[in-house]
Design a protein around this nucleic acid. Structure first.
Length: 279
DNA sequence: AAATATACCTGACTGC
DNA sequence: TGCAGTCAGGTATATT
């Protein structure tokens, strides 16, 4: 499900919730325990959690790439939603458990944050140092970072024989762009997804970066895209799916030229584009 | 070096 | 109704 905008929205909501907790009383941001189901996610969460000393306070929650990082007073919780993960909150100690609840963060005031993930492609680990965590340390730059280095981005593109869509979905080159927003940004930039990186001009790359940033920001504004599994903290859907221009629109008319939107496969992923508008 | 396949999973949907 | 096959917002690794 979740690409940068969806994770960002969730992170902001969790952080807001944390601020609300902190206003109430200090103890409400204190985690008393974390309960993990026996079914493994991508990795064995339990193995890493034995290092976590309870109780522990949550200080803030931030997104890095498609990961949510919970900053604790000692260490970090690192969460990734995979394809079908979601977080929800429960106010009461005795809440109704749902199928595929895999992680329960229980606070000292008995409120909980629960991670649910049918497909279990998600990821949840405790780590003393997230910067050097194997899944974090090789990540490329954030597209919405003011310090984003365009020259370095363009160098990686122009020196590659790979298709531009796989390049912008490569987290070593730029993080947060998944299968939906890659198709959307390329359409907005009028670039065919199958173009090779070394055939992209500097001006095109500049424009593409701008469109990536635009589409991500707009999606955040809309609360993300909800196709099926993505929900916000209190179960709300995002609405950006209503603004998709090409993703999932094969056989439908292009919003610009009215020719049929096409679907192909690149890097094993469904890819949507307008053959007429995108060069 | 890059494209492809495989692996990790469940669930929704299609066609017979 | 059931059963097989396909596909899905991700990512790492192995193989061609």
């Amino acid at each position: 499900m979740p690409e940068l905008p969806e994770v960002e929205v969730l992170g902001r909501q969790l952080n807001q919730e944390l601020i609300r907790k902190l206003k109430k009383d200090k103890k409400s941001s204190q985690i008393s325990q974390i309960i993990v189901s026996d079914l493994k996610l991508r990795t064995d969460s339990k193995k890493t959690l034995v290092q976590c000393q309870f109780p522990v306070h949550v200080l803030k929650i931030k997104r890095r790439s498609k990961f949510l990082i919970f900053y604790l007073d000692k260490g970090f919780l690192i969460s990734h939603l995979g394809m079908s993960g979601s977080w929800r909150m429960e106010k009461k100690q005795t809440f109704i458990k749902k199928k595929h609840d895999h992680v329960i963060i229980q606070f000292s005031n008995f409120e909980s944050w629960i991670y649910n993930d049918p497909r279990r492609f998600g990821f949840f680990e405790f780590s003393l140092d997230f910067i050097n965590h194997p899944w974090i340390k090789n990540l490329g730059p954030e597209p919405l970072d003011n310090e984003f280095n365009f020259e370095s981005f363009f160098y990686k593109i122009k020196s590659s024989d790979r298709t531009i869509k796989t390049l912008i979905m490569d987290a070593k080159i730029i993080v947060g762009v998944g299968n939906i927003y890659a198709s959307e940004a390329l359409f907005m930039a009028r670039i065919k997804p199958s173009r090779k990186g070394n055939k992209i001009s500097k001006v095109e790359a500049q424009n593409l970066l701008k469109k990536i940033q635009t589409v991500l920001l707009e999606a955040i504004e809309s609360g993300g895209s909800t196709l099926k599994d993505y929900f916000q903290l209190k179960g709300q859907s995002g609405s950006f799916q209503n603004q998709h221009l090409v993703y999932g629109k094969d056989f439908q008319p292009c919003s610009i030229c009215r020719n049929e939107i096409k679907k192909s496969t690149l890097g094993g992923r469904g890819t949507f584009y307008c053959d007429h508008c995108q060069k």
